[in-house]
Design a protein around this nucleic acid. Structure first.
Lengths: 335, 335
DNA sequence: CTGAAAGCGCTAACAG
DNA sequence: CTGTTAGCGCTTTCAG
């Protein structure tokens, strides 16, 4: 059943049917009514390929993330998909993995699909922002608009929607200091843009409060509960851990810290105060429940899609938009 | 840059270029080489819309799941995407939500995209298998092959790939009984096909071992850690909980049970043995770590995609394929 | 307000 | 092995 069939049945030309499908204002209500009825009756649906060919668009946006099975990204993809659908856009999903070559490959492949826009989820794509490492993003942006969710690359046609991770960590660390903590451990697992921002928040908060920033308190470790435990075990050996607070760049890391601290029979938060990141399910699963910085995934996603729609309808938009985070207090902090 | 440009530059006809693009065997290596070089040089990529129009396929499969932000589904989507990509297929993702009307709508919308096949993730789509409730699936299957991941609907062109949830629960309960447990609580949160299978495994294992199946030990509760705690609190009030084991149909439920049991100062697993489901991150996050039934999401997904490819290349396939589960023992059981 | 006709870029049947 | 040509189903001028 195609447009010709409908045209014939309705006794009009295919042009008219096309206009009806696209709800063009220059068709009389009467004709519209008639054509629509026929379409309904015959369950006609326009062929998206043909339409795509003509319009050079299928109202589809590409979403690339390193790994949807990661809770944070899964949630982001869910929010993005939902928002996009509200505007009538479909999503094609590509999980690229974390390796540089794979990311480049992912972008290159997805561009061939002639998507209307591309969203890169997570700051892994921006890397540390080095020009070389982000050339593939700039290059993609020469073909279609690219939106970075929680990443930052300064280039034409790339639009960045970011959580204010710097400020969030800065504030958290400051709160801890005001609470009397002297030795604040920072757990991180990445050198992505947002990871670096978090680190900067940690360092500057310490500095601004007159504290040194000792290297041994910044521990870089894979985001895996057991790994964190054994890493801390290894660092502090037999001697008692000499930190009284932990700020982690992800809840998984924080849970590892919780487990380690408890295994040393220290009290949380009395002896050590712990703050996680992302306010994920993990944060209410462990014992005691984690305080956690909520990076506002939902707002970020909705903002990104709104921006995109604005852009796609021909309006100019800013290159960077920052959304504030929010600390969710639970049982691992006492302020 | 289209096929005509390339043809002209290479001094051949568009048919030849097309053949080269599709790696047809009936082009001389020499010509192929020449055309390929030109294509490379000019960064030519075939227009997928035009190709789609001609072939009536864009090598794309639709994936619908109620909610990708759910850990189990996220992981499934990740595995599916990866496997599909290996075969050169793209994924368009649709999160339908759990409501019946929304699921019907999702299927109907995604069919309009002329996907090559449809995958429905999770047994929510099969519902309790009632004919009425699954008509939309049968109907979709009349247009394209439909694959149910962990759901079951008996109908032509719908193919079901299932974890053996019945057996898994049956075995777990039997193990608990052999360990001397007398009052085994069953926590569930759904009436989907697989949920029902789990329940059946529980009931039959009890029955086959000469135990009664008391209604008060089957508790149906929303999958939310706090909800489970307060629900159990409400059921057992001031009196001591009188169960000595728990089998949950999801790790989230099991974590709720762990928290409840610990709040009553009972020992795990000595006083109560607890088994979760899905072997998710939650299971190693709580204290003590959960034993959990691994429903083999990865194998399920890979099997599904293999099946699909087999089908798409014209071979007949079976309507149902069952993958066994596996109990991962950790600290909440002592057998 | 409506219709005729020219593409959009590619595939595949047919002819050589 | 290669070229010609007729669609695929829709959008969009351009005329009327």
């Amino acid at each position: 059943m195609n447009i010709y069939d409908i045209a014939e049945l309705a006794g009009v030309s295919i042009a008219t049917v096309s206009r009806v499908v696209n709800d063009s204002p220059k068709v009389s209500e009467k004709t519209k009514e008639k054509v629509r009825r026929i379409m309904e009756e015959h369950h006609y649906t326009p062929n998206v390929f043909a339409r795509g060919l003509g319009l050079n668009s299928m109202k589809t946006v590409g979403i690339i993330c390193p790994d949807v099975s990661d809770a944070y990204m899964a949630s982001a993809v869910a929010h993005l998909e939902k928002s996009l659908r509200c505007y009538g856009y479909d999503c094609i999903l590509y999980c690229s993995g974390y390796a540089y070559e794979d990311k480049v490959e992912a972008v290159s492949l997805i561009l061939q699909k002639r998507i209307d826009a591309l969203i890169l989820v997570g700051s892994n794509y921006a890397g540390d922002g080095g020009d070389q490492a982000t050339e593939y993003i700039r290059s993609a942006a020469r073909e279609i608009p690219v939106f970075l969710l929680n990443g930052y690359v300064r280039a034409p046609e790339v639009y960045c929607i970011l959580a204010d991770n710097y400020q969030a960590v800065y504030d958290a660390v400051t709160d801890l200091i005001e609470d009397g903590r002297k030795r604040i451990l920072f757990l991180h697992d990445s050198t992505s843009y947002s990871a670096l921002e978090k680190l900067r928040g940690y360092e500057e908060a310490l500095g601004d409060n007159g504290f040194p920033v000792p290297d041994e308190l910044k521990v870089f470790v894979r985001n895996n509960i057991e790994m964190v435990q054994s890493r801390l075990q290894e660092i502090f050996r037999e001697k008692m851990p000499d930190f009284d607070a932990v700020v982690a760049s992800d809840d998984g890391l924080a849970v590892g810290a919780v487990k380690y601290v408890r295994s040393k029979n220290l009290r949380i938060p009395e002896d050590v105060s712990i703050i996680g990141y992302n306010n994920s399910e993990l944060s209410i699963c462990c014992e005691p429940e984690l305080s956690s910085i909520d990076s506002r995934g939902k707002e970020l996603c909705e903002t990104a899609v709104e921006y995109m729609m604005h852009y796609l309808s021909g309006h100019p938009i800013r290159h960077k938009k920052v959304v504030p985070c929010r600390l969710v207090k639970r049982n691992t902090t006492n302020f």
